[in-house]
Simulated scan of single mutants.
Amino acid sequence: MAVVTEAFDIPMDIMTKLATGEYRRLGGVVRVAIGPNKGQIVKHLDPIKIEQVAQNKNVVTKVIEFSKKNRKVIIIGTAVAGTIVAGNFVHQKIKNREPKVMKRYHAALRSYIEDIRNGELSMKSINRLMDALEELKQDKRYEMLKIELTTEELDVLVNRIYEYTVKLASDNAVELTDDEKKSSDNSILNLQRYLKTQKRIFKSVA
């Protein structure tokens, strides 16, 4: 039996491109990170007062939690992007160059998202991203690289992937377990959990 994989909208806006490595944010400046336009400025983010940082973090957290309880809410967009603080997160590079493990992770994530958007998700793209994540976690520099990964952008993207996982299960008449519905504060662990769930759905239907 073929797995039902409908096209699912994950907007490729600034937030998603930051999470997948297509853009880089240094302070309040977003630049193109790959391709012929590398280094080109995409957007200047509006800075806010330092005393507002903690408040904005709480707002982002509340929005994400709200969306988890209200599955139809799409929260990827400029409304959340507007809360990004200049200098709030610093994207660190190792020796001024992105490590190969990070490049493979970003490439696998971009391919995976594109497959979802086109309704063409496969075991191949799921396994590729799972392997890239595991390789990243095994890298000796993971604790340093994790600073770049754990941003609001990735949190929001992973939450949207959870939305897709729920839909994938429903479309294929597969019931999610209680463990598969859980989430933690670690977006990377959550992403791995949802990928494993998607893999189980594919195996269940095959």
Results as ranks from 00 to 15, higher is better:
residue 140 K to H: 08
residue 160 R to W: 03
residue 149 L to S: 01
residue 167 K to F: 04
residue 147 I to P: 00
residue 161 I to Q: 01
residue 175 E to M: 14
residue 149 L to D: 05
residue 179 D to F: 09
residue 165 T to Q: 08
residue 172 N to K: 08
residue 156 V to P: 04
residue 172 N to H: 05
residue 162 Y to R: 04
residue 140 K to S: 09
residue 171 D to I: 08
residue 139 D to H: 05
residue 177 T to L: 13
residue 162 Y to M: 08
residue 151 T to A: 01
residue 171 D to G: 02
residue 162 Y to H: 12
residue 181 K to W: 13
residue 170 S to L: 10
residue 161 I to K: 02
residue 164 Y to C: 01
residue 138 Q to S: 10
residue 169 A to W: 09
residue 167 K to M: 03
residue 167 K to H: 10
residue 173 A to S: 15
residue 148 E to I: 13
residue 177 T to C: 04
residue 169 A to S: 08
residue 175 E to W: 08
residue 148 E to Y: 15
residue 147 I to T: 06
residue 180 E to K: 13
residue 154 L to T: 01
residue 170 S to Y: 13
residue 147 I to F: 04
residue 178 D to Y: 09
residue 152 E to L: 12
residue 160 R to N: 05
residue 168 L to E: 01
residue 168 L to H: 14
residue 156 V to D: 01
residue 173 A to D: 09
residue 163 E to V: 10
residue 182 K to C: 06
residue 140 K to R: 13
residue 181 K to T: 12
residue 171 D to A: 13
residue 180 E to I: 06
residue 158 V to D: 00
residue 178 D to G: 09
residue 161 I to H: 01
residue 169 A to P: 05
residue 156 V to G: 09
residue 138 Q to V: 05
residue 139 D to F: 12
residue 181 K to E: 15
residue 150 T to A: 06
residue 138 Q to H: 11
residue 181 K to G: 11
residue 173 A to L: 15
residue 149 L to K: 05
residue 148 E to A: 15
residue 141 R to F: 10
residue 155 D to Q: 10
residue 163 E to Y: 12
residue 169 A to N: 15
residue 145 L to N: 12
residue 182 K to Q: 05
residue 159 N to R: 11
residue 155 D to M: 12
residue 180 E to Q: 07
residue 165 T to S: 02
residue 149 L to W: 05
residue 175 E to Q: 14
residue 145 L to A: 00
residue 169 A to Y: 03
residue 170 S to N: 13
residue 176 L to C: 06
residue 149 L to C: 13
residue 162 Y to V: 04
residue 145 L to T: 00
residue 173 A to W: 15
residue 144 M to L: 09
residue 145 L to K: 00
residue 167 K to C: 04
residue 139 D to E: 03
residue 179 D to T: 10
residue 163 E to S: 15
residue 166 V to M: 06
residue 175 E to Y: 10
residue 144 M to V: 08
residue 146 K to I: 02
residue 166 V to W: 07
residue 146 K to C: 02
residue 167 K to D: 08
residue 148 E to N: 15
residue 178 D to T: 10
residue 162 Y to I: 14
residue 183 S to P: 11
residue 183 S to R: 14
residue 168 L to Q: 07
residue 170 S to I: 13
residue 149 L to M: 14
residue 176 L to Y: 02
residue 174 V to G: 10
residue 177 T to R: 09
residue 144 M to G: 15
residue 172 N to Y: 08
residue 143 E to P: 06
residue 174 V to K: 14
residue 160 R to I: 07
residue 165 T to V: 12
residue 160 R to Q: 05
residue 146 K to R: 12
residue 182 K to R: 12
residue 146 K to A: 05
residue 183 S to G: 15
residue 158 V to F: 00
residue 174 V to W: 08
residue 159 N to E: 03
residue 144 M to K: 12
residue 177 T to P: 02
residue 160 R to E: 03
residue 164 Y to T: 03
residue 167 K to A: 12
residue 149 L to F: 01
residue 140 K to M: 07
residue 147 I to K: 02
residue 146 K to F: 02
residue 159 N to H: 15
